[in-house]
């Protein structure tokens, strides 16, 4: 009987609830938590102030122009007409060129380091890629300005190089058309081909390639050994294994890394500013002299001392920030949702 009752009692409390632990923190802990929380709040405040301040200071310009700020193709804050349509298009075009150049390069380099490189060399190569990401952008800028443009892409008076070839044979595509330059005219001046969106994009590509490559390499290296061996066991060649295991596994990381690179490419200033002559109209011909970039616009016009001029620049900066933020957030979501990227740092 007694035994029976115990069993019943036991079953009534069979969820063995943990007792409520009351945490008594020591004074040093309270100080520590308070201080770290304060630091967190300070950082939060700084970051919010940056965002809010940009928005507030941009308000007069946005009030004045409204949605026309995104469509106007001129920059005359003194005259009360300004808009980012031209430079926004230019920014996107430069970033697009940069991504088109850098993604194949980065994929190749990442695949080489993760799959082909001898095991002893791979860590050194990883370091090299990281070093390439740490090279200051102004160094890439002067490299592009003094070597890439005059000696490789638009070489000599005749402007030998890829841009001339593209516009000669693919000039019928509007993107590759160059106004005022006839490639079949031997006297044609090659300056029409310099300082173009394309060249700026190639320089930006050099800056973002290592960023993309390091994310991709990390993801490729995580491809499970079992699946690789399975592919080999089914008779796949190395490339067959990469195509069927590594690349599908790393797809999320590849997309995410590309988006991260795109975010950097959109905000790049100095390399673009050194090369490009900024124009404010929409310039869809990427091989032609002149282009636009929001960051170059800010670097060019920050000396504008009128309040509306500064407000207009703030608004442009806000548009740029919104764009990079959107791209980075999507990149973060893609990377963390993918099968491979959840554990990667990017």
């Amino acid at each position: 009987m007694a035994r029976h009752r115990t069993a019943a009692a036991a079953s009534s409390v069979d969820t063995d609830a943990p007792r409520r632990a009351r945490q008594r923190r020591t004074p040093s802990d309270l100080v520590f938590r308070g201080m770290s929380r304060t630091a967190g709040l300070i950082v939060l405040a700084i970051m919010l102030v940056v965002g809010v301040f940009l928005a507030v200071r941009a308000t007069p310009a946005l009030d004045l122009m409204g949605w026309r700020f995104l469509t106007a193709q001129t920059w005359d804050p003194g005259g009360g007409v300004f808009g980012v349509a031209g430079v926004l298009t230019g920014t996107v075009l430069i970033a697009a060129v940069a991504i088109c150049v850098s993604v194949p390069l980065a994929t190749g380099a990442a695949l080489y380091i993760a799959e082909y490189a001898p095991r002893r060399v791979a860590p050194a190569l990883v370091n090299l890629v990281d070093l390439m990401a740490a090279v200051p952008s102004v160094v890439y800028g002067i490299w592009g300005f003094f070597l890439l443009q005059p000696h490789l892409l638009v070489a000599g008076d005749a402007g030998e190089g890829l841009p001339r070839w593209l516009t000669t044979y693919f000039g019928w595509i509007p993107l590759f058309k160059v106004d005022g330059y006839d490639p079949r005219d031997p006297m044609a001046n090659a300056t029409a081909l310099t300082s173009s969106t394309f060249i700026a994009g190639v320089i930006v590509a050099m800056m973002v390639t290592p960023i993309i490559a390091s994310v991709m390499r990390e993801v490729f290296a995580q491809a499970p050994v079992g699946e690789r061996e399975g592919a080999y066991a089914l008779g796949a060649t190395k490339w067959g294994m990469i195509r069927t295991v590594v690349l599908p596994f790393g797809r999320g990381g590849m997309i995410g890394g590309t988006m991260l690179g795109l975010g950097r490419a959109l905000g790049e200033t100095i390399g673009v500013y050194l090369i490009l002559s900024v124009v404010f109209v929409v310039q869809p011909h990427i091989l032609q002299n002149g282009g636009g970039s929001i960051s170059a616009l800010i670097a060019l016009r920050y000396g504008d001392s009128t309040p509306i001029g500064i407000a207009a620049l703030m608004a442009a900066g806000l548009v740029l920030f919104a764009m990079t933020l959107l791209v980075n957030v999507i990149a973060g979501i893609v990377i963390s949702r993918s099968r491979s990227g959840a554990a990667s740092e990017a």
Binding site: V50, G267, T269, I298, L313, M314, L320, F321, L325, N328
Partner: peptide, 19 residues
């Protein structure tokens, strides 16, 4: 917020301090 701010282009950081 910190992750969002890593997207801040450096020129915009400069513009913020300038303003």
């Amino acid at each position: 917020v910190v992750e969002a701010m890593t997207a801040l282009p450096s020129i915009v950081a400069g513009l913020f301090v300038y303003a």
